[in-house]
């Protein structure tokens, strides 16, 4: 039932998306192309208690996104200096136990006590689609972008593979493939190193009003997609019902991926395999907040400049007297 409501609401949301695309296509207003109207972002709810770890979602993601994967040509250009790592996953396309440029979703395993009983929990992991995504905001070229419906994605035609998005991502989500992309046409020896890849929340399916592949394929309806406020409402109701816990609502200042678990997330975090391409469940502070707070405080700087000049003027006037 709840899934149905969310689907209807989700479709309603996608009509708004389609509407905005049509509006900009007809060039209704130049202002709308620059200044966007605020729309409620979409979010997903992931009910960990339902997941059986069948990996149907993982394979659906791979199948649905196969034409977005890189096809690098060897030999890769020599890069300077020697320390620049070649990251080549093109021969390891079937790896599914971590994130790679060819695997944007994987299933994490944890053993935990649920209602006094030891249970193996399986958890789908991918990009969290942060509300204010550092991967997008700090990308030096605008190759990573956030869409009005809240999803973030990396444009493989523009990305130079410097991996800054991965460094600033609190979960180290984006993954690099060397030997592909724009850097090959610029200065491949000196700058860039391929293209970064991650879950793009199936933006192309959403544009058509369809549900992301991993959500559609899941036999257990583990994921639900809908407007963020409704998803949060559902997540809280579900957490209350199972006496469970929520992750993703406040992490990094808020994300569009809300996990609900029957066991606390720090316990899950202690039990999962973590490492490169394997995300944690730690508490994450709002990464963009300090910069934005400083920006607000810096508004005072021009006033200080005026005050200093006024002081000087006052002193000079006094000296003249």
């Amino acid at each position: 039932m709840s899934k149905k409501i969310s689907r209807r609401a989700f479709l309603k949301g996608s009509i708004t998306i389609a509407g905005s695309v049509a509006a900009s296509a007809t060039g209704v207003s130049t202002a709308t192309a620059l200044t966007r109207e605020k729309k409620e972002p979409l979010a997903t709810l992931i009910d960990i208690s339902k997941c059986i770890g069948c990996e149907e979602c993982v394979y659906a993601c791979q199948e649905s996104n196969a034409d977005k994967y890189p096809n690098p040509e060897k030999p890769y250009p020599e890069m300077f200096p020697k320390r620049v790592p070649i990251e080549d996953w093109s021969q390891k396309r079937d790896v599914t136990d971590r994130l790679t440029p060819y695997n944007w979703l994987y299933i994490q395993h944890a053993t935990a006590k649920v209602d006094g009983e030891e249970r193996e929990l399986t958890i789908p992991r991918r990009c969290m689609h942060c509300d204010n995504p550092p991967c997008v905001k700090l990308c030096p070229w605008g190759a990573a972008k956030q869409e009005d419906n809240g999803l973030s994605r990396i444009d493989s035609d523009l990305c130079l593979g410097g991996s800054k998005c991965k460094t600033v991502c609190p979960w180290d989500i984006p993954q690099r493939q060397t030997g592909t992309g724009l850097y090959l046409k610029l200065l491949p020896a000196l700058a860039g190193n391929g293209v970064m890849y991650k879950c793009d929340r199936c933006y192309n399916l959403l544009e058509k009003g369809e549900v992301p592949a991993c959500i559609e394929a899941c036999p257990e309806d583990v994921q639900t997609i809908g407007p963020r406020s409704e998803i949060l409402e559902q997540a809280h109701a579900l957490a209350k019902e199972m006496n469970g816990y929520i992750y993703g609502e406040h992490e990094n200042g808020g994300t569009s991926t809300i996990y609900v678990s029957p066991v606390p997330f720090d316990e899950l975090n202690n039990n999962i395999e973590k490492g490169d391409g394997q995300a944690h469940f730690e508490k994450v502070e709002n990464k963009m907040a300090s910069g934005n707070n400083i920006a607000k405080a810096m508004l005072i700087a021009p006033l200080a400049g005026i005050a200093a000049a006024a002081g000087k003027f006052y002193k000079a006037a006094k000296e003249d007297e």
């Binding site: 460094t167 990464k287 300090s290 405080a297 810096m298 005072i300 700087a301 400049g305 000049a309």
Partner: peptide
């Protein structure tokens, strides 16, 4: 990147303060 991002913001603030000071000086004095 987070440290240098903060630094860039802080020095940008100081820079704007200096520019406003120079302009005010020019206009007033």
């Amino acid at each position: 990147f987070y440290i240098t991002h903060l630094m860039h913001y802080m020095f940008a603030g100081i820079f704007m303060g200096l520019v406003v000071y120079s302009i005010s000086n020019f206009i007033v004095l």
